[in-house]
Amino acid sequence: MTSTIDMHCRPATGTPADAYTLGPLQSGPSCCDPEPLIRVENLSLSYDNKPALAGVTLDIYRGCITALIGPSGCGKTSFLSSLNRLTDLIPGCEVEGRILINRQDARAPDLDVQTLRRQVGMIFQKPNPFPLSIRRNLEMPLREHGVRNRSELCDRLERTLTDVGLWDEVKDRLDTPALALSGGQQQRLCLARALALEPSVLLMDEPCSALDPLSSAVVEDLIQRLRGRYTVVIVTHNLAQARRIANYAGFFWVRERAGTLIEFGRCQQIFEEPAHDLTAAYVSGARG
């Protein structure tokens, strides 16, 4: 079982037999890299002076998939939203502590949040394609970020839709409303929309929990294939899924009415040799 990590860490190019191809790697390591891309130090977060998250310190490694697990309401989503500063949009939300992304302070007041969010993409629990056509869903954000060249737009459209395995399903109806797609297709479209901006980090907030089991499996496969090329942080309630896809795992729990990180480590260690009793109880299904 010691080889589990290595098995998880296969290159993202995958085998030719795979249904989905991500194409050649353009950047990043071929697999997990022990170099931290995101360092979070002593992060606390409160809504209207009610603490939601207290003292979280953890490193997120480049090219790896990091799963955040724990019961509802323990601040996992808040943690995720503070990484791309979506917390800025929530009235009454206060964040304290340090977040370094690629050695830059993501909480600096003079930071350009829009550039940050372009680099740190996010997928939500409920698929949220815009009420536009499939094509415009992908092209509009690109245009807003300065990609105006027609052939480049078409190129990225096809590439990212192929990456998420949607190209063959929608290539004949790119100008139909995105909201007419099925839930699983919508979620893959949202993923493609994020990938089109060529982010380095992808934050995923329970990306499969609103989908039926089949679509969920398709999206999960897709996340597997992002390994290496993107740094993925995924919040999930599905422990089996976390175990299947993650290289690292962090376990959150509520302590003194605020969520906090109980344990963080290699996925295998968290699930098989948890250092903390709470973790052991949670992953074995005894609590939570």
Partner: peptide, 15 residues
């Protein structure tokens, strides 16, 4: 959802 989606893609409020 759409506001959050737009913000997460780094779109400006105007866009």
């Amino acid at each position: 959802d759409w506001r959050n989606g737009a913000a997460a893609l780094g779109l400006s409020r105007g866009a």
